[in-house]
Amino acid sequence: MWQMFVRWFHKWSSPKWFYEMSRPWSFWLGWAAVLLIATALVWGLAFSPVERVQGNSYRIIFLHVPAAFLAQAIYMTIAIAGAVGLVWRIKLAFYAAKQCVPIGTSMALLALITGAIWGKPTWGAWWVWDARLTSMLILLLLYLGLWALQNAMERQESGDRAAAILALVGVVNIPIIKFSVNWWNTLHQPATLKISSAAPMHVSMLIPLLMSILGFYLAFGAWMLIRTRLEILDREKKAKWAQEEIKRLEAN
């Protein structure tokens, strides 16, 4: 059983094997994401009822929450991939980690900007130095740090390793973001979605929110696959098969 797992793991961690197998994945993930996000946003913008206290500004939630969820999930993906790369010396994990960084940065930015825009009509301020907002800003800075480390080193392998260590250290920030609304007095509202209890939200707001979150996760999957596959070609470009594949990219 264990040996079967090891064999499976080695097969999938081979960049060439992964490149071959993942060929059709991003297409299906991408279209499922387009369908889900489009439905969710049209539903949320035009059909969900107006919120009693916040009025229509609450409709920002359908972007804000998925972006904030993804910014954290992508960070955890990078940290786990970094650990796998450091412990088992798997190159593919480093490739994926590197290509997750721009996507995660864009999501952290989107969460912060939509949050600021939502904060203005709701709290009367674009920004407050409160625990949730500050820890999210730290997440954005961590992303920028990862990007800088990956690109600062002369040898790409050193950059990968340094970024993986920073990613692992920065994991402390994730529970701080999650629990900041419980641990400190904050303006930010507590979590709307909880696994342990029903959401205190009307179904016609909840369903598009869940659809949007799922759609963003799938979009991340598609974007990460497309980018990781290109990263594989870039790093393996000394190999004949990778060069052939790059030529095929040009033909399409």
Binding site: S57, I60, A67, I103, S106, L110, T114, A219
Partner: peptide, 21 residues
């Protein structure tokens, strides 16, 4: 309901982020 500027700016930023990706 006079939140148009906020909602549509947020969605424009969202569109820009998706386009970037």
């Amino acid at each position: 309901g006079n939140h148009g500027l906020y909602v549509w700016t947020a969605y424009a930023v969202g569109a820009a982020v998706i386009l970037f990706n």
